[in-house]
Amino acid sequence: MALSSSHIKRLATAGVLIAGLVTCLVIGGFAHYVLVGTATFIALWEFYGLFSLPLHARLGGMALYGLMLTATYFFGPMAGFIVALLSFWFVNIAYMFICGEELQPDVPSRYSTHLVMPAGLVYVGCSILTFLIMTPAEAALVIVLTAVSDSAAYYAGSYIGGPKIWPSISPKKTWAGSVGSVVATALVALAAGMILGEHFPGLESLHWSILPAIGAALAVAAQLGDFFESALKRTIGVKDASNLLPGHGGLLDRIDGMLLAAPTYVLLCYALPRVTAILG
């Protein structure tokens, strides 16, 4: 079956993105930070745009993320997470001083709007920051597995069809696509672990038989991340976060699954060796 122009555009854009990602990850070091920082600044700007945040608030959020990234570069990821937490409190304290004399019964809606800035730092900033906890090989693994999950879901859902998962949030996603995503990602994770296992220190203490489960978990996480961004866009009433990437919408639309898959990988690498040691 011939590929449609939309499929060709989608694949071409994905190819360019993957080539850039692989280049930065292979170089490693400062290039790794540049990759993470650039992706986050773009996705964060798109996130703030979804909520029509005023320019000064957007710039304030970007500045706080710059501080997070700088703290991470010099002192490690934990410093970046602490800056994110302090940013939440900074915004809360600023809210008291700015709005404290004008509080009205509509304060819940006003406060929720006020929290968009620190929410972006957590949702986009901290999620992408977890890539800096990984080695370049592990970051590449998560990116590839997320891409496999997304592509398998798209094509399995397109060609098999069937019942929808959650039509009120994402009308096109099917159970067939979801299952295809989990199976494909589990198989790729197994192959990657067996061939390149020594490059993934977070997985080195685990038996190869657990790798399909890790791949499946990342596929589920990526799908949930995708659903969440779809729910945001449906609530706001927009189709894409931006039109930056042909065939994909905005960068946030492209990496929404990674925003949950990356911290899920870090959590699994931390928890599974400890659980297996306890069990024996």
Rank of each mutant, 00 (worst) to 15 (best):
Y123D: 03
V124C: 07
G125V: 02
S127T: 08
L129T: 04
T130V: 05
F131K: 09
I133H: 13
M134E: 00
T135W: 12
P136V: 13
A137S: 02
A137R: 08
E138R: 06
E138Y: 13
A139M: 10
A140W: 10
A140Y: 12
A140N: 06
A140K: 15
L141C: 09
V144P: 03
L145T: 02
T146Q: 15
A147I: 09
V148N: 14
V148R: 15
D150F: 15
S151V: 12
A152P: 03
A153D: 04
Y154S: 09
A156P: 01
A156M: 13
G157W: 13
S158V: 09
S158Y: 13
S158C: 09
I160H: 08
G162F: 10
G162T: 03
G162N: 07
P163Q: 11
K164T: 04
S168C: 00
I169Q: 07
S170A: 09
S170R: 08
K173G: 01
A176T: 06
V183K: 04
L187A: 12
L187G: 01
L187K: 11
A189E: 01
G193W: 13
M194R: 12
G197D: 02
E198P: 10
P201F: 13
P201L: 12
G202L: 09
G202M: 08
E204R: 14
E204P: 07
S205Y: 10
L206F: 05
H207R: 11
W208S: 08
S209E: 03
I210W: 13
L211S: 05
A216P: 06
